[in-house]
Amino acid sequence: MDKPTSHNWAMRGLYAALAFVVLFLHLLPLDAQPDRWPFPDVLIALTFAWVLRRPDYVPTLLVAFVMLMADLLLQRPPGLLAALVVFGSAYLRSAAPGMKDTGFIGEWMSVGVVITGVFLVNRVILSILSVQQAALWPVLIQLVLTLACYPILVALSQGVFGVRRMSASDAGAVGGRA
Rank of each mutant, 00 (worst) to 15 (best):
A90E: 12
I44Q: 10
L52D: 14
Y91D: 07
L74S: 07
P38T: 08
Q75Y: 09
V111R: 07
G106D: 00
V58R: 10
V22N: 03
P29G: 06
L28N: 06
R54K: 14
L61R: 08
D41Q: 14
V111M: 13
A83T: 04
H26Q: 15
I105Q: 12
I105T: 14
W108L: 15
P55C: 02
A95D: 09
P34G: 11
T60K: 07
P40G: 12
F24G: 05
W108R: 08
R53H: 15
P40R: 01
F87D: 05
W108M: 08
P55S: 04
F104I: 13
L61N: 07
R54E: 03
P77H: 09
F65A: 15
D101K: 12
H26K: 14
R76L: 10
L30S: 05
D101R: 14
R53V: 05
P77F: 00
F48Q: 03
P34Q: 03
V22F: 06
P29S: 06
D71K: 10
H26S: 15
G88A: 08
H26P: 11
V22A: 15
P34R: 11
L84R: 04
P97F: 02
Q75A: 13
L61V: 05
R54L: 04
M69H: 03
V111L: 06
S89E: 12
I105M: 12
G98V: 05
R53T: 09
K100M: 10
R76P: 03
G79F: 00
G98H: 07
F48K: 04
R93Y: 06
K100C: 09
V66N: 01
G79V: 01
A90D: 11
G106W: 01
V86Y: 02
D31I: 12
A96H: 10
D71L: 11
G79S: 05
R36Q: 14
T102Q: 11
D101C: 06
L80D: 09
W37I: 15
R93A: 05
A82V: 00
R93E: 07
F39R: 15
R54A: 01
L25I: 04
D41A: 02
L80H: 05
V86W: 01
I44L: 15
F39P: 06
Q33D: 05
I105D: 11
V51S: 07
M67C: 05
D41N: 15
G106S: 03
P77D: 02
F87W: 09
L84W: 02
P55T: 01
L84C: 08
P38I: 00
P34S: 08
A90V: 10
G106A: 10
L68T: 03
P55D: 08
P38K: 01
L61Y: 02
F104L: 14
R76T: 12
R76E: 05
A45Q: 01
F87P: 08
W50Y: 02
L92E: 10
V86F: 03
L30N: 11
L30A: 15
L27F: 07
V66S: 05
A83L: 13
A70D: 12
R36Y: 11
R54N: 08
R76F: 06
G98D: 06
P97A: 07
G103R: 08
W50C: 04
D35M: 11
T102R: 14
L46P: 00
A82D: 03
